[in-house]
Write a protein that binds this DNA or RNA. Structure first.
Lengths: 184, 184
DNA sequence: ACCTAATTTGAGTATACACTCAAGTTTGAG
DNA sequence: CTCAAACTTGAGTGTATACTCAAATTAGGT
């Protein structure tokens, strides 16, 4: 796709423009025009590198989640607490991005649901991560039980994050730890 | 506002049109034109009765949540299980509405955040309901502890509902009950 | 029947949006 | 240096959007 150096740089500029717009003003602020203006690119160039605006947005959201992953290379040394901490950190450092994530995952009417499938895959990977960490800390746990516990804990974290998005005075880290104590 | 009988009926028609459009096709399908066509009304009439499209949508979402409330008049006889059941039922009966609820609550950039405040108030009322029910089943629970438990359980339910929205083969009622067992 | 206020109309405003494409320019491998 | 492919341009397309308002009509209390 982007094989020339200049194309790679353009793509990076577009991604950075999209990232900063999402972080500053959420989805509403992230129009094609705004992205192109900030990236110093005309719209035709954008579409030479991305199939749609949503492609760029999803790329950025996934990238920023990966950025706070305690074990991005899956070495397998992360604990449940590490994962919960990473979740708290993501909310703290990228509050707007968390909202974008949820809306992009749910609003998939327009996109068909390819976006939704992508978010589901991402969720399943996280469940696996949590389940693995739970088994490492308690080897007597069966894989099936670990999976259920992981879905419950991740569900609780997601719901508490939604709660926090409604009202940022909500003490997410505190409740996240309480939830973590209930599951294992 | 709507003092003539005909105005009251028009308002009801608009609400019903909005409700059915949201249930059938979510937010994307619920344009002003679609609402007006279905309600057999011209746009001017709509704006005589509602301040904005979003007013009508929020009205409908709140109404449909209330419709599955096990104790809408707050008699105070509902148990935690009743409340969890009502939550499951809402997802089952109004799947599209649940997504609309979340998006409307989070997408408040455009609205300022008056919508967000409204959803927060609604959330707080539900926390209170859950907390009250928990105290009724276990009178040794302090109000403060009940509040914390209620936030945790409701958070877990919200997160599991998000999980279910990603993939409707997810067995929400099963996980909801598991979560319910962990908190009390 | 009168009269005010409620309601309705519907053409009109503004305008924002994602996306396209044919024609040019630049890149870099051979 | 050549040249095909990668990249860029930017005016243009098409469409949908929520919302307004002045004028006409209707409701219903008196």
């Amino acid at each position: 796709m982007a094989r020339y150096q200049v194309g790679i740089e353009t793509k990076a500029r577009i991604i950075e423009a999209t990232r900063s717009l999402l972080a500053e003003g959420g989805l509403d602020a992230t129009t094609l025009k705004a992205i192109c203006d900030r990236a110093k690119v005309r719209s035709g160039s954008f579409y030479n590198l991305f199939g749609s605006k949503e492609d760029a947005i999803i790329h950025v959201v996934r990238e920023s989640i990966r950025a706070v992953d305690p074990d991005p290379d899956r070495v397998g040394t992360d604990t449940v607490d590490d994962l919960v901490d990473a979740y708290s950190r993501f909310l703290q450092e990228e509050p707007e991005m968390a909202r974008v994530y949820v809306i992009a995952a749910l609003a998939g009417e327009s996109t068909g649901d390819s976006a939704r499938r992508q978010f589901l895959r991402h969720h399943m990977r996280r469940v696996e991560r949590f389940g693995d960490a739970m088994q490492r800390s308690d080897p007597s746990l069966t894989p099936e039980a670990a999976h259920v516990e992981a879905e419950l804990l991740l569900g609780a974290l997601d719901g508490l994050a939604f709660r926090w998005a409604l009202d940022q005075t909500f003490d997410f880290p505190k409740y996240a730890l309480l939830a973590r104590e209930r599951f294992n």
